[in-house]
Write a protein that binds this DNA or RNA. Structure first.
Length: 308
DNA sequence: GTCCAGGGTCCCA
DNA sequence: TGGGACCCTGGA
C-alpha cells in the first residue's frame, strides 16, 4: 500500500474498488455523511476518531497521518481485500453480475463490534434516516466530544452536552464554532449500561431503549464477549447474540457481517426477502455465494433499493 | 384526519 | 409455524 502524506491528509494510490458513496450509503453504517459542498467527500466518526474521506481518480484521500492510515483506516476500510475478485465470484448469474457491477466500490467496513450491535438493535422496524438521527443523538448525549478541523482533531473527555443539554437544536450531532466542528464518539457499552430507560427518552427510539441498555449491560459485564465471538464460528456467535433481548435473526446477522466482519453472514431484511423471492424463490440458499454471502447481500440490497 | 411502512422481535396460541 | 402488537416518524 503506497501512502503519500501531505497537507493533513494521506493519499492511498491504486485503491481499486472503493466508492465512498456506495460504501457509506449501502446501509452498513450510520455515522458517515456527505459533505454539503458537493465535493463527494464524506466525514464520519469511527473507532473514536473523525475522518474526512474522498476519492479522486484511482486514489483515496483520508485526513490525518500515514500512521493513522496504517493503524486504523487500513483495517477499518478493509483495504487489503480484493473486492473485484469477490464481485467476480458472487456474479453467479445475470442478476448478480448486474448487482455487483452496480455496487462496485462497496466495501464491508470493520466497524466497532459494540457500535454495530447497538446500531442494528436501533435499526429494527425503523428507517435509515431515523436510525441515523437516533444514533447521532445517542452519541451527542453520551459520547465524548471531538473537535475536528481539517485533518486535525482534538479529543476531549468532557462532553458539554452530556446530560446537561438534552434539547435538540438544529443538527443534533454537529455544532459549528470557530471554524471547527464538534463530533461525538459512539458511547461505550459501560457508559450506557448504567442508564435507565428514561435516560434514553430524548432519542425517541421507543421500545428499543430497553434493548439498548440490556445489550450494553451484557457487553459491559462480560455476559457476552464480542471480541471472543469474532474469533469463533458464526453459528456460535449468532446464537450468543440472539440471547440478547431485541436481537433476532436479522440483527444478529448484521452484527456478524458488519461488526464481527464475518463476510459469509447473510442478513435477510424486507428488501432482501423481496428480491430473493422474485429472483430465486423461497428455498434460496445463500451458500451459493460462500464465503462472501454477506458481500453479495450488500450488492443485492444496494441494487434493489437504489437502481431504477 | 387515517393509514401504512420502515435494514424486526417478542409473545402466544 | 403463524399472526398480532409494538414506539415512533414521515409520507401518501
Amino acid at each position: 500500500m503506497k501512502l503519500i502524506e501531505r497537507d493533513g491528509e494521506v493519499e492511498i494510490a491504486g485503491i481499486g474498488d472503493f466508492d465512498p458513496a456506495a460504501t457509506f450509503g449501502c446501509g452498513q453504517c450510520f455515522r458517515w455523511e456527505a459533505e454539503p459542498d458537493g465535493s463527494g467527500a464524506y466525514v464520519g466518526v469511527a473507532m473514536g476518531r473523525v475522518a474526512r474521506v474522498r476519492r479522486e481518480g484511482g486514489s483515496l484521500f483520508v485526513s490525518g497521518t500515514a500512521a493513522d492510515c496504517q493503524n486504523v483506516w487500513r483495517g477499518y476500510f478493509d483495504l487489503d481485500r480484493d473486492y473485484a475478485q469477490i464481485r467476480r465470484q458472487v456474479g453467479i448469474d445475470g442478476f448478480m453480475r448486474e448487482a455487483a457491477e452496480y455496487g462496485a466500490g462497496i466495501r464491508i467496513l470493520r466497524q466497532d463490534k459494540w457500535e454495530a450491535l447497538c446500531s442494528f438493535i436501533v435499526s429494527q422496524r425503523n428507517n435509515i434516516p431515523r436510525i441515523k438521527k437516533i444514533i447521532a443523538e445517542l452519541c451527542k448525549l453520551f459520547g465524548d466530544a471531538i473537535e475536528f478541523r481539517g485533518g486535525e482533531f482534538h479529543h476531549t473527555t468532557e462532553n458539554p452536552d452530556n446530560q446537561k443539554n438534552p434539547e435538540i437544536t438544529g443538527n443534533p450531532e454537529i455544532a459549528e464554532k470557530d471554524n471547527t466542528t464538534t463530533f461525538y464518539t459512539f458511547p461505550a457499552a459501560s457508559t450506557l449500561a448504567g442508564l435507565r430507560e428514561h435516560d434514553l427518552a430524548p432519542l425517541r427510539c421507543g421500545y428499543r431503549a430497553a434493548y439498548i441498555i440490556g445489550a450494553a449491560q451484557a457487553v459491559a459485564d462480560g455476559a457476552i464477549d464480542l471480541d471472543a465471538l469474532a474469533g469463533g464460528n458464526a453459528d456460535d456467535a449468532r446464537a450468543a447474540l440472539k440471547r440478547l433481548r431485541g436481537v433476532g435473526d436479522k440483527v444478529a446477522d448484521c452484527v456478524l457481517l458488519f461488526g464481527l466482519h464475518m463476510l459469509d453472514a447473510f442478513p435477510r431484511d424486507v428488501w432482501i426477502n423481496r428480491a430473493i423471492a422474485e429472483r430465486y424463490g423461497k428455498g434460496f440458499d445463500p451458500s451459493v455465494f460462500a464465503p462472501y454471502a454477506g458481500v453479495a447481500q450488500q450488492y443485492i440490497y444496494h441494487y434493489v433499493r437504489n437502481s431504477t
